[in-house]
Write a protein that binds this DNA or RNA. Structure first.
Lengths: 196, 196
DNA sequence: ATTGTATGCGAGCGATGACTCGTGTCAGCA
DNA sequence: TGCTGACACGAGTCATCGCTCGCATACAAT
């Protein structure tokens, strides 16, 4: 039974439930998340939870959505900021911003990337990726001469996927590569692929 | 109760169970896989299944292991074959081989990559990655002059992760990029990153 | 044949957890 | 103050599943 909150207290409740879901995911992990546990963590009864979420999946979706909205905000803002710069002047700060954003919530990122099946969030993840691919594609289209006969959309697809994955894995696996070295490598990777 | 099969028929049973697990994963998906269902699919009783597998997870592990052994075999063989070639002469056939191997079993790849939580197979996946990173790292170390001050191990980490992820996503998402174009892009990506 | 052992069976136990529903409470309004 | 509908509660229902155990059967050795 999906209701639209009409009173203030119920809107607070939705917030508390999302917050609790986040806490349970980080503290107990994805497998241990039950609607009963989320309700308990939120100090709310299971029945109340189901007044605002149709099922368990919807709760998780809401938690993930809140996180990825914040992330999307930061990334696209950072990208848009430097869309007029060229080459490394644009690439390096963007990668730094991405790494910062991911590291800030590394524990939750681990849950999303390693514990939740990818398919569960495919729609949300892909929407975010599509949005960034669009941005980067437009950027590349504006400087098409650089690319030879590579299509901008293709180049954007490759770049965005690669950078996203590499940064996420770097943050989660903490390989024995100093951050500075890692960033430089990514910049080199991008620069080699998009010659100017 | 993990038993070591002593008679021929029981060895056949283990094989049938693994085969059934594979079939259930592909046909019904990860969430729908129960030990009872696997047993039924194998034409075997649940009790018998537990004579050879300590728990459900072990069954899945065995199924995944069989798949990733085949994959590892093909990739490392292909890599080793061309370890003496230089530049694109080595890179392109390797990527082609990787794409071939992934496409051959795309349905099962989807289950592994999109439905099973990554953490479930981290040990197996990482072992495979480590092995390939080792191979590539050794290759790069042998031609260290090319890399400037980038450490071979770092370059290998970046390359292997990037190529693996991009090829998997390409196979699973079937973006509107022709295969030939995609391969050329990956070759360009590698060539740009590892100048010679 | 007979006995001992390995193998196989499948009904069912025990626990879990998503979700419901009957009951109670609170806020706002006349 | 009494009424009404939104809101909240939480014990309980119902189905699912991982896993066990007592028994049956096939096989090998003697």
């Amino acid at each position: 039974m999906k209701k639209i909150p009409q009173q203030e207290r119920s809107r607070q409740m939705v917030g508390r439930i999302i917050e609790a879901g986040h806490a349970v995911l980080v503290r107990d992990g994805y497998d241990a998340l039950s609607t009963n546990r989320v309700a308990a963590e939120a100090g709310v009864s299971p029945g109340s939870l189901y007044q605002y979420f149709p099922n368990k999946e919807a709760v998780i979706e809401a938690v993930v959505e809140r996180y990825s909205d914040v992330l999307a905000e930061r990334i696209t803002a950072s990208l848009a900021d430097r869309i007029d710069d060229a080459g490394p002047a644009m690439v390096r700060p963007t990668i730094e911003a991405l790494l910062d954003a991911l590291e800030e919530n590394a524990e939750f990122l681990r849950v999303i990337a390693d514990e939740i099946p990818r398919a569960e969030n495919s729609s949300r993840t892909e929407a975010l990726e599509q949005r960034i691919v669009g941005l980067v594609g437009a950027y590349l289209a504006a400087r098409r001469a650089d690319l030879g006969d590579t299509r901008p959309s293709t180049a954007a697809w490759v770049m965005v996927r690669a950078i996203e994955h590499l940064t996420v894995r770097y943050v989660l696996e903490h390989p024995t590569i100093p951050r500075e070295e890692f960033v430089s490598e990514l910049v080199r990777l991008v620069a080699g692929y998009l010659p100017d």
